[in-house]
Structure formats: structure tokens, C-alpha cells
Design a protein around this nucleic acid. Structure first.
Lengths: 236, 236
DNA sequence: ACCATATTTGTACTATCGTACAAAAGATCA
DNA sequence: TGATCTTTTGTACGATAGTACAAATATGGT
């Protein structure tokens, strides 16, 4: 990757380790893991490439530390919000609260830095698209429990919808969420300026509204598969 | 990238150019653009690295050619299906047909190779996540027209929904579609085996059902923005 | 002020990257 | 068959990748 920014003279960083983490998060989530070099990160953080090795040993280690940093607080927040949502009496309101409990922490999770939540979620989106091997394990370990908890909670609110459909529709929610964080400018472009894709508050409300409706839709009729002969499995 | 596969002795390729394109498509859509080297592609195609330079000049040129190859047929197919969908009389059926016209070509577009459509769509998903600069221009040029046509068609079927909401919900559809192609195994995992994320036919039907429902949902009340003070814009 | 420790810098090594280019091999057709 | 053009191969070059490591510097307790 080639980027122009000149080395900033800058006031001395009080905590270089944090600066490196923040820079890596920003660059990885924008250009992907492989497109960003350790030197890019060091320069953006106003540090020496050697510092990265000192603090995180390897480039993979740096990515791992970013996940370690965020996963705990985000899933904690989700668990809290989910517990609160489950106490909502009205079924319709409860469903909406559950979906919101899933979406909100993705935008506002416990980083002290402004936009920390969205940046980390954007990072997760990019990493899942790149099929990053280092990350795949963390995802399966750390997020599947949370996802299961949400699927279960939704299923309790919608007992007549088969669990399978709820899984599909929750999956669509995560995809929509990721894509909105990765390509927000597309929303602005397609709406010809009447919508702002970077407006997190609006994105959340639109996501919640759309997802609640999709979850409530009648399930597919499983007895009539409606397969088409010209379709082939994904990934060969 | 390190991959184990030994060089295949193989029957002579009748058309090396096509083999290189297919290999690049598969590798790019699985690992991302930057993680795959020209040598990886050449080896997977049973070709010499020099052949890639000969046929496509640069790595970027190879990616460009992949897009050139697929964009035309896919958008043509979409236009045909959209035209047919617009002729459907019943409003509910028409909406469903329009959504299906958008989704179907992403899975089955005009490549002669099996799974060509899904592979190319997966590639687009990965490229959008990586923020690939070469691709960004093509996307804006080639796909925005199509997207506008679909948003317009949907709006005609749902005149009481503001265009802005339709843009958001169509955007969510594309995100869900991309994510399903990128991480189909997550569906299988979360459903504990009762669903198969790689089942394209099922994915299409679930996508259509969920999207139609979300499109029909009541729009957000625009007079009460419901912004929260702790939210910040995406992308700083 | 001194020392021990923690951090940062500068530099260098090896591997691999994209790509250029000349030579070899294959294909086409008079 | 021989001439010409197309395709493939083999190799090499400069740039950049990740990371190791010794020297330099900053820090904190006594």
C-alpha cells in the first residue's frame, strides 16, 4: 500500500502501544489486513516499525490483540442489553428490543475512542470477507455463543417461526450491518443525497425496522422446496 | 499466501487465458486481491507467471478483465428479469418478482462454468470489503444504474414507502446477499446443521422472503429522528 | 545521581512481490 | 517446408514485505 502522509512531527505519544493499535484498527478496517504493511501502521501511529514487533511480536499478534481488546466489552454490552430486552412484556416490543440489543453494540461498543465500535465492526466485516485464518477461530469461539443466545431469544418471541428461518434472517441482519459499515457511501449515492449512509443512528433504526419485519414474515413452505435445476451449491 | 497444492502435471490447457481467469476468480474471491500473488494464480492455472503478464499486462488488468467478462451478462439478465417482473399484475407478486430478479442473477449469471455467478458475486463482495480502488470505479459505473432501476421499480410497487427507506432496505439486501456468499458455513454452524448455507436455492428463497417483508414494513417516522447522543458518524 | 528496566530507534536480512524481457516452443498458412 | 506470428517459458531486477536485533534513549525507584 502506498500512502502519501508525511511523518507527523507531533507531540510525543503518551502511549505508543495504544496509538499503534488505533492506527492498525483504522487501516485494517479500511484496506484489509494484507494491503496494510507494518510500516504503514507504524507511520500512521508516528512510531518506528520496530515498536510494532516489540509490543505485538508479529503482525498477526497485532490483529489478535485488537480482537482481544474489543470482544469482551462488546459481548458484555450485548448480554446486558439482551437481558433487559427479554424483560420487555409486549411481544412485538420485545422482539424489537432484542434486535436492537444485537445491533447497538456493533456501533457503540466500549472503546474509549470515538467511533471505536463501528471501526471494530467494520474490521470484522473486512476480515470475514478476506477469510482471514487468524480471525476465523476467534469468530467461531467468541461470537457464536452470542449469536446463539440471540437466535434463541428471537425464537422465544416468535415460536411459530422455525429456528432455521430465524438463523437465516439473523444472518442477513449481520450481512446488512457489515455492508452498511463497509460501504456507507453507497447509500448516499443511491438515494441521491437524501440519505446519509454514515448516519449511524439512522442506520440502526432502519436495520432494526427492516429486520423485525423480515423476522415476522411467514416462513417458507418446507414441503415444496422449489429448487431450480440450474442452481448449484455455493463454493463448489 | 502459502498453499500446498503441487503443480498439476495435467493435460495441456486448450485455452490458458481462460484457465488463468478462472483461477484468479476463485482465488481472489476466496482470499482477497492482495493476499493472492500472480504466482499463486499461475500455479493454480497450470501456467507460467509470465503468461499472466502476457495476457493481462498487470494484476490489476486481470481483475479488470474478470469484471468485464461478467458485468455485461449479469446486468443483461437482471434487466430481462426486471422487465418481466414489472409485467406481473398482482402488486404483491410483482414486488416478489422484482426482488427475485435482483437476487437470481447474482447466483446464476451467464458464466459457462458451474457456479460462475456465485463466484463472481463473492468476488464483488470481497472486493467491496477490501475497498479495492480499481474496482470502486467499475462498481459505481456499472452497478449503480442497475440498482437505481430496481429501487425505482420497487418504489412503483410500494408508492407509500419513501424512496430513502427503499434505498436502505435494498442496500441491506445486497449486504445480506454478499455475506451469505462469503460466509455460508456460518449458517450451517448456527443452525446446528439443520440448514445448509451453501444451498443457493434455499438462500435465494430466504433472501426474497425476508427482503419482501422488510420492504413492506412501515417506514420510520421521520419527524422524530430518535438520534442518540452517544452515536457518532461511521468512518469518523 | 545512579542503576535497572522498559521502550524506541535504526538497520539489516531474507523472502516474496509485480513485472519486464529475451529465448524457446507452438501454431498458421503460403 | 519455411516464414511469420502467437503463445509460453525461464530468469532476473528492483521494490517492498515481515521480522530480528543491537544500540540508543527514556523512565522510575532509591
Amino acid at each position: 500500500m502506498v500512502r502519501k502522509s508525511a511523518k507527523v512531527p507531533s507531540t510525543r505519544k503518551p502511549n505508543m502501544r495504544e496509538a499503534i493499535l488505533a492506527a492498525a484498527e483504522e487501516l485494517f478496517s479500511t484496506y484489509g489486513f494484507n494491503a496494510v504493511s507494518v510500516r504503514d501502521i507504524a507511520q500512521a501511529a508516528g512510531a518506528n516499525p520496530g515498536s510494532v514487533t516489540y509490543h505485538f511480536e508479529t503482525k498477526d499478534g497485532l490483529l489478535l490483540e485488537i480482537y482481544r481488546r474489543h470482544c469482551g466489552p462488546m459481548n458484555l454490552r450485548r448480554a446486558e442489553l439482551l437481558a433487559a430486552a427479554k424483560r420487555v412484556r409486549d411481544l412485538q416490543d420485545r422482539l424489537e428490543a432484542i434486535v436492537r440489543a444485537y445491533v447497538l453494540p456493533a456501533f457503540t461498543s466500549g472503546s474509549d475512542l470515538a467511533g471505536g465500535g463501528t471501526r471494530f465492526t467494520r474490521l470484522r466485516a473486512v476480515m470475514s470477507a478476506e477469510g482471514n485464518e487468524v480471525v476465523r477461530r476467534i469468530i467461531a469461539q467468541t461470537f457464536d455463543d452470542t449469536s446463539h443466545a440471540f437466535v434463541d431469544a428471537i425464537h422465544e418471541s416468535l415460536p411459530h417461526i422455525p429456528r432455521t428461518d430465524i438463523v437465516w434472517r439473523s444472518h442477513f441482519l449481520l450481512g446488512a450491518l457489515y455492508y452498511t459499515l463497509v460501504t456507507p457511501e453507497r447509500v448516499s449515492r443511491l438515494s441521491r443525497g437524501s440519505a446519509d449512509g454514515t448516519d449511524a443512528g439512522r442506520a440502526i433504526e432502519e436495520l432494526v425496522r427492516a429486520t423485525v419485519a423480515s423476522l415476522q414474515a411467514e416462513p417458507l413452505d418446507q414441503t415444496a422446496p422449489a429448487r431450480r435445476k440450474d442452481l448449484v451449491p455455493i463454493k463448489s
